[in-house]
Design a protein around this nucleic acid. Structure first.
Lengths: 194, 194
DNA sequence: ATATAAACATGATGTAGGTCATAAATTAAG
DNA sequence: CTTAATTTATGACCTACATCATGTTTATAT
């Protein structure tokens, strides 16, 4: 399912400026959101305001289906990370897409499986592993997605919000990882060497 | 997809005695496993031997698809919790089921969405919440699945393995929850009152 | 009924990582 | 260029939970 196809079929594009909330916990799901441009973060927030990054979604991806499919209220916020153009597709239309668009259903199955895989991995980390191991795991996960020689453009705060640690801990731990040579740095950012 | 239908189509049933390992981390996925009878637990184990329960699967359910679908090695062990009869369905047959069995594909999508929902919830808990909150969350999640007046037949060790806590912590915390009245107990086990 | 193994319980002590405070270094904005 | 805002950095202290040790109660098997 590519986004242009949706537009051709007459679905409307909605603009969300950076930091605009797309949906929040407690709301009943009505749409699945297809991202044409920009980026979205999905976060849960604890009582005392600590954020956890459940996922980052980019152009070409969609989000919000699980809650809609199982028909339960959202658990997370989704917020535009940058200015974004998004196509909300309502429940009926979404189910029509699944039924009638060749390959869409199997694409959805793959997407859900992938996310499940990531979440299983992170659950194990958060349940059992300590700071150093958790950090190495996401760092390597993120490094696998960029080119050799590129730097990870992720802040320490974001790493903290993905691992359930606090910034200070991430800062100290990354310093140790660099000293140990477990991680290579370039001007304060982690770089992929191989 | 009900299990009898698979048997009618000629798929073989394999017996696994209690505690038999069905697959383990590092293996390449070759089958999806449909449970005819018995029960299976999926666990990840840290370096120092601590277990985390990724999921429990019962008669009528299937497991092992995500790794097969994304074509990556298993992260977890799956182990028979009780004597079990299981039908391994190989990759090609499984994809045929998706393609050709009416309703199977949408059933799979629902199943994956449900698990994703559970894992998102637990990730938030493990990342941000302390022992008491974590415990109340799974306890209520588990209570929702049993009848009013029934007792939760789950050990404190199992609660520990689902929340990333240690038995002693779970024991102490449950005692506090009972004293606070946040949880009702009957002969040492948590009971659902309403 | 008795033995044996799980499960539950509780105290004493240790520690990883959180919290708080304060500041230097980058990056973005005007 | 200068200012403001983020991000990174570091020390001092604290706390929730882990760890270890040992015992009691409750199931399970013979």
């Amino acid at each position: 399912m590519d986004i242009q196809e949706l537009i051709d079929r007459g679905f409307a594009v909605k603009k969300y400026p950076k930091d605009k909330v797309i949906y929040e916990p407690g709301m009943l799901p009505r749409y699945v959101y297809f991202i044409r441009t920009g980026e979205v973060r999905m976060i849960t927030v604890s009582n005392d305001g600590k954020e956890f990054i459940q996922g980052i979604f980019k152009a070409g991806q969609y989000f919000g289906e699980p809650a809609l499919i199982v028909n339960r209220r959202y658990l997370a916020f989704t917020i535009a990370n940058k200015d974004a153009e998004i196509i909300p597709v309502n429940k009926q239309d979404f189910f029509n897409l699944i039924e009638n668009t060749p390959g869409f259903s199997s694409n959805l199955i793959k997407t859900l499986s992938n996310r499940l895989f990531y979440k299983s991995m992170m659950l194990e980390e958060l349940a059992n592993e300590k700071a150093e191991h958790r950090l190495l795991t996401i760092i390597n996960y993120l490094l696998a997605d960029i080119e050799i020689g590129e730097r990870l453009k992720v802040t320490r705060q974001e790493l903290a919000d993905m691992t359930g640690l606090r910034v200070e801990t991430v800062i100290r731990e990354i310093k140790l990882l660099r000293e140990k040579g477990s991680v290579n740095m370039d001007k304060g950012k982690i770089i992929r060497l191989s």
